[in-house]
Every structure is written in structure tokens, then in C-alpha cells.
Design a protein around this nucleic acid. Structure first.
Lengths: 212, 212
DNA sequence: TCTAATTGGTAACAATGTTACCTAATTATA
DNA sequence: TATAATTAGGTAACATTGTTACCAATTAGA
């Protein structure tokens, strides 16, 4: 028992049952934050159940009680990554010109992949081999990506659904980022140039069709 | 000692030194084939050093003597995957029309990802977390992909180098296949449609620029 | 207050990559 | 040719992981 694992303190719950649930929820969030900081500091391989428990100063049992399997913790890291990505998009200044804004959002996605590479590997790079996103995880990504989807929807491009056009953009951009993070694209500058060309191709393809 | 681990038999080497090298090379290839069959049959998780040794009826030491680390074996599986991919491309009937041929090669790449998903995951999906392709591996991929590069080169599209345009195509297609294999794109039909749209986008973007 | 259920810790299990150590065979050298 | 050095290969262990069986203590409900 320590600062984390002590119910009844710092709570406004009226019953002990509620206190427990609050405590449990608080614990969950603490575990996720500890795992996330391990991920940021030392990369995906460093996120082991034992190490998380060590940093929490508790036994591994607690993690299994809260998340069932390591995969359950991975799911929370996925959602945490979605929140980070969503914030990056929200912090992107937009112009109102669809072509330019799509380019800016694409650049934000590239930055996310570079500056939060460990999260990217967990979310989309298969760093935890067992983990496959469930419906909730994918909804988290849909939410994070919603600015792109909204942009496509408002641009009224063609007969395709904005959701799937947004996914087409995602997949193409992901391909460059992922191959780059996997070390299959040579130097960083070359990868960045390839990314820019890919963005240009997408913008050209989507917006020039409209003018014909 | 068994059928695999017996130098001096079935050899045409004049000296014992040569016989040893031939034997060693033969062993290497046997190990790779055993690992590849495990990969095909049971997926990447099944490819463990112990299981490969078991199927070879030898100790794990041999694998470490031949490949240093498991990563070394992964590299050979990467190259084997490149050969399979190269054969798929070679077996693709081409028409001589660049747009159509690019589409056919892209379809061959999709089929490779679906029918040799385990290889794809090892090569590009990070199934072996430790593995990063070295120069030789990437050269293997360049060779496998050379038909696409040659097609782009012969089409004489723009000022960009054919190599990097071919890589741009690769990255975009890889994005769809990889997200699909990672279970992040919904059903298979939807993913296939998304792939087709991506191919169409690429063809449109590359070949329509030329006509302006 | 007494019984049942839940929480959480300890220690173990099984699987894996990897290596230390030993044996035997092979090669080189006197 | 005989002996020393090198090498190949097997056994068994080590460390690290995810995971679970078991037990003690605490808590909830009668």
C-alpha cells in the first residue's frame, strides 16, 4: 500500500462502494500514466507488466485485476495515443482553404509519428504483437482523425463517403511513416520528402478531380 | 547428427574445407526452409529458435552458430519473402500499357500481402520486434520491386527519380495492406475497395500530370 | 459478531532468447 | 605419426517475460 493504492483518501464518495469504484478508476489511470511514461522514456520493449508494477510499488496482480491481460493495458495506451494525436490536430492552425488545411493536418500527423514514435509503434506498428484494436480503440482513432474527416466532408469532393476518403488519406500517410519508423526508407530527410510528395499526390488527386 | 547435419555426403567438393563450407551453406538453407515452413503454417509467433531446432532434430546452438541471433534468421526470411514477391511480380501478365500494368503489379502486391500474410508481417509488419532490415535486405526488396521501378522509368513521368516514385507507390500501398493486416480497416471487402481506390489515386496522379 | 466474498501479495509456471561449459572430432604442427 | 590446438555441437542453465495458483487479510452482509 502506498500513495496510489489507498482507497478512502482524497475521495468525495458517500459510500465505501463508491469509494472503491473511484479508487479502482483512479488506480487504472495511474497505471496507464505509469505505462505511458515508461513508453515515452524507454520505448515499447520497456513496457512490461513487472516494470509497471515496480513503478507503482505494487504487485503485478493489480495490473491483471484491472486489465485482464497486457493487451488490455495496450488498449489504454492506444486510446491515450489517440488523445495525444487529437490534441496535436486541435493545436494545428487552419486557414479555411481545404487544400492548405489538409496539408497542415498531414504535417501534424507526420510530427505525431516522429515525436511520439513509441506511441505510434504501439498503436499502428505492432509493437505489442498480441494487441489488435477493438471497436472502442478504433472509435478513439476515428475521433482523433475527425478533423480530417470533417475537412473532407466540408470540401464536398466526390461521391465517396468522407469517412472512407479520410481513411484513404490515413492509409497512404501511414504507409510512409510506418516504413520510415521500421527503417525501410533510408535517411530521415528522404523519408520526409517522400511524405511531402505523398501529401501532394493526395491533395492533387482529391482536389483536382473536382475542377474537371 | 541426421540427414541435415552430415558433411561429406552428397558433395562434390575437392577439399574437406570446401566440403565444410558447402555443408554449412546447405545447413543454412535447410534452417531457413524449416523456419519458412513454420512461418507459413503457424504464423510468426511459431517461429522460435527452439522449434526450428526441434524440426531440424538438432540443438539450438547450430542456429546461433549460423545466424548469430534470431534476427539473423529473420533477415533470411525477409530475403525469402523478397524472392516470393519477385516471383509473383514475374508471374504477372503485362500488357505494355503503363497504367494497366501498374494496376496489375499493384494487384499482385495486394495478393502477396493476403496470401503470404505471415511473410508480410515479418518483412514489413514488425512481427519480430528486434529485426530491422540491413542494406542487403533492402537491396532484396529493391530487386523484388524492380519491375515497378522499371515501369515507372520507362513511362518517363516527371523530374522525380523512378526509384523514389516507385517507393512512393510502395509506401502508399503498404499503408493499406498493413493497416488491414493489423485489423484497423474493418472488413476485408472494405479494405480491398480502399486498396483499389488507392491504386486509382496513384495512377491518376502519376499519369494525368503528364497530359497537362 | 460471524461467515462469505473480495483484494492483493508471494511465489511459482511455462515459454522464450541466449550463453557457459563440456565433449568429441578434426586439423595443424612437431 | 603423435600430440597439441581449434572447432563443432550438445546439454543445461540463466534471465526475462506473460500469466496464474495459492494464501492471507480485509471487507461486506447476515
Amino acid at each position: 500500500m502506498n500513495e496510489f493504492t489507498n482507497p478512502g483518501l482524497n475521495t468525495t464518495a458517500s459510500t465505501l462502494q463508491e469509494a472503491r469504484q473511484q479508487h479502482s478508476e483512479h488506480l487504472r489511470q495511474s497505471v496507464v500514466q505509469v505505462a505511458a511514461s515508461l513508453l515515452r522514456e524507454y520505448g515499447p520493449e520497456a513496457v512490461t507488466v513487472r516494470r509497471v508494477a515496480e513503478r507503482m510499488e505494487c504487485s503485478t496482480k493489480i495490473i491483471y485485476s484491472l486489465f485482464n491481460r497486457k493487451e488490455g493495458l495496450a488498449k489504454e495506451l492506444y486510446l491515450e495515443g489517440c488523445r495525444i494525436l487529437g490534441r496535436e490536430f486541435e493545436a494545428t492552425a487552419l486557414t479555411g482553404i481545404p487544400e492548405a488545411d489538409l496539408q497542415r493536418l498531414a504535417q501534424a500527423y507526420w510530427r505525431f509519428g516522429q515525436e511520439h514514435a513509441s506511441f505510434y509503434q504501439v498503436m499502428f506498428g505492432g509493437a505489442f504483437a498480441e494487441f489488435k484494436p477493438d471497436e472502442i480503440s478504433m472509435q478513439g482513432m476515428t475521433t482523433a482523425w475527425s478533423q480530417v474527416t470533417a475537412l473532407i466532408a466540408s470540401a464536398d469532393l466526390d461521391e465517396n463517403s468522407p469517412e472512407w476518403t479520410a481513411r484513404l488519406i490515413w492509409a497512404a500517410l501511414h504507409g510512409v511513416i510506418h516504413l520510415h519508423l521500421a527503417g525501410q526508407l533510408g535517411s530521415g530527410e528522404e523519408a520526409a520528402m517522400l511524405y511531402d510528395r505523398t501529401v501532394a499526390m493526395i491533395v492533387h488527386s482529391l482536389f483536382d478531380k473536382r475542377r474537371n
